[in-house]
Design a protein around this nucleic acid. Structure first.
Lengths: 132, 132
DNA sequence: TAAGGTATGATAATGATAATCATTACTGCA
DNA sequence: TGCAGTAATGATTATCATTATCATACCTTA
């Protein structure tokens, strides 16, 4: 029965809560190691996977390919520069109604969503146009 | 000056257009190889990067970590099952207004956005609850 | 305490992407 | 047309996050 949470899962959950921000599995591993007794890297990945399936943790993939995790929270979205990778948070989020609709029309239990905008920040756009 | 497109870039662009669907860099590499004269894998990656920066190609990352590319197109979003990976397309998209706002308020030139919902499809939710 | 199952951790394997570097194609100019 | 300099290409290697493996430790229940 997977309703029970593992000790590692609890630790990770707690740390994620304390941090209040996204963090990669690798960084989590290091962080846990600093704090108290360490947790194996494999276990970090396993726990994150389980928590994700449990609907309490969400993940998104950064431009460099690594995934970052956080507690499921509504409306933390981003605007990311394709050139320099700068990522600024945005707070508006117009997808709630849609989410509710989808949940019934598509017969999916939706845990979370990601919404990301990609383009060029003004600085990079300049450089880009200049042909730098 | 990077306004000019490379031959490889043109080939890739054309193939993406013909395909009309998302495809990974690796698959593109194989595909190009089948069609005409091959293009090196490194060049595939470089070209995709350039086209992305040029605002004509968009990318998103699959659950398994690989990135898929397609021509920039509005409103091709997905609903993905965290368990089995099933990914069903959705056609509604409520973010246009927000995108327009952001473009001015955040001083970003936005090329495209991704919007993805994650959860469990009804089948997997059953299995999950059953503790399989 | 013993048995069965699950969780864990160290480590190796995988696989996509990025870096390297020598070679080739292209550009503008004499 | 020939040259020089620059950008593009491709084969290959390096990197690095993630997964798989497998033996050990733990926990629950009888």
């Amino acid at each position: 029965m997977e309703a029970q949470r593992t000790r590692s899962q609890e630790q990770i959950l707690q740390l994620l809560g304390k941090l209040g921000r996204e963090i990669s599995a690798q960084a989590l591993y290091v962080e846990l190691r600093h704090h108290r007794q360490g947790v194996g890297l494999a276990t970090v990945y396993r726990s994150l996977e389980a928590l994700k399936l449990g609907g309490v943790v969400q993940a998104r993939t950064l431009a460099n390919g690594e995934a970052v995790y956080s507690l499921v929270q509504e409306d933390k979205h981003h605007l990311t520069c394709l050139q320099c990778g700068a990522s600024v948070p945005i707070d508006a989020c117009p997808v709630h109604e849609l989410e509710a609709q989808l949940q019934t029309s598509k017969r999916f239990r939706i845990y979370y969503h990601t919404l990301e905008f990609f383009g060029l920040c003004s600085l990079c756009e300049h450089q880009h146009l200049a042909g730098a």
